[in-house]
Write a protein that binds this DNA or RNA. Sequence first.
RNA 1: GCUCCGGUAGUGUAGCUCGGCCAAUCAUUUAGGAUUCUCACUCCUACGACCCGGGUUCAAAUCCCGGCCGGAGCACCA
Length: 497
Amino acid sequence: MAPELIDEIHTKKEPDKGLKALKNTEGRKVVMRFAPNPNGPPTIGSSRGMIVNSEYVKMYDGKFVLRFDDTDPDQKRPMLEAYDWYVDDFKWLGVIPDEIYNASDRLPKYYEIAKELIEKGHAYVCFCDGETFKSLKDTKKPCPDRNANVSENLENWEKMLAGKFEEQEAVLRIKTDIEHKDPALRDWGAFRILKIGHPRPEIGDRFCVWPLLDFQGAVDDYLIGTTHIIRGKDLIDSGRRQKYIYDYMGWTYPELLHWGRIKIEEFGKLSTSGIKASIGKGEYTGWDDPRLPTVRAIRRRGIQPEALKKFMIDLGVGETDISISMESLYAENRKFIDPLSNRYFFVWDAVEIEIDGLNPTVAEAPFHPSNTENMRKIKVDSNKVLICNSDYTKFEKGDIVRLKDLCNIEITSVSPFNAKFIDNSLETLKKTKAKIIHWAPTDAITVKIVEPERILEGKGEEGIKNELDKVVQFERYGFCRIDSVSDDEVVAYFTHK
RNA sequence: GCUCCGGUAGUGUAGCUCGGCCAAUCAUUUAGGAUUCUCACUCCUACGACCCGGGUUCAAAUCCCGGCCGGAGCACCA
């Protein structure tokens, strides 16, 4: 076979790395947006949209827009703090949006387009109550208001805007095809009346007519110049509805890509509103409680932005619903933090043991096994050290045990406990194949580790106090992020094994 | 009820557009082993999949039809 053919076979076998190419990107500036409702902080699920959209923009040197779709002050009422939380989590991911918009600032623009659509005869004010309209629609029958003429509709629309109607009394619909075979596309609602007021003080109760997602999103995507949209499969019909507006207005609809639902095995069904209620009841310590699937929570636990990014990019954009495990994210994260994390001894369920013949000394241990030049010093003032109870209870008479980086000892008796110092040579360790355990000095500081389901308290090296906000590895325990430090106590958040 | 998606190893993913380089990629998980003063990291090995049934074809994971399973939409939510 010709060598170039062999080469070709090899290159074709290489798997595609990263995100697949987008369609229709030639000769134009790619504009993409991420459009959350800020009714809570970003979750791991939202981070997929944050990451993939912004990565695509980076890939095509385009423009990235963060748009808060905060037009439901009622059922999914925005939280004022959440706007900043999104910006902050983006920053953590290394993304600075080129533009940021609040849909709630843009109501006049939506009204303008709505008026134009009414004038063109593509929208009407409907006075049916919800159930009436639904039964008409389900039987492909038009509602009585569908035939109103343009001036009647304009008049009623102005009355809506002026607050002349009550909530539920009127709604503006986009006229599509009342006999469309897909009931989801028949004359969908575009604006409704809400007199509750918006949480943003600059908006407050200035408006009483609010757009629904399909209208607001359609108009904004056009005004912002969005070229490509990636969103959940649940919005497939949404795209079809929005195309009616684009056709009526003579606009070109963006390229569409959808992804399926993402379920995280470790977290059950948690809704933003459900979590909010649980936090209110004190069941969680806050939005960064380590039991929650929020970006703030995994940040606090020491997950690195690079790991989350790689993880999400590797998932790609598929329409299949997927079920992922945090274990995969941990595996990704471990690769980032392992080379960077200093090693320390942390002893849980501490037991003090006395070793005959051990003299006060200063043990030296490497901060990282890859570099034995850079050593940490651990002072041992007596012949006593702390070890884990789980190691202690496994001792048998006659065992040779290595206290890592300190010395070898022999267990001469277990009940009562008695041990004697042998030496500190590595040769002895190799010859006897002693079990290696870690330890801590008797004057070690208190270390509290916040695990998802409990707080584990133990003793650790003094030097841990220098690692505030960094991720360390407690040998034979796992990785932790040092969350706070005081004189004699450190609080760490458990990252993963 | 109507409409629309999807189904490759335990999990995720590549391949499906334009059928043959696919006895199916890569990662993770699991099990062995090597290395290591950590039960971490690294390295090696192993296990493991095209939902089912037809059809088209010399040839189907890839195209067509039917079925099964899963998900979504049909809101005055996003």
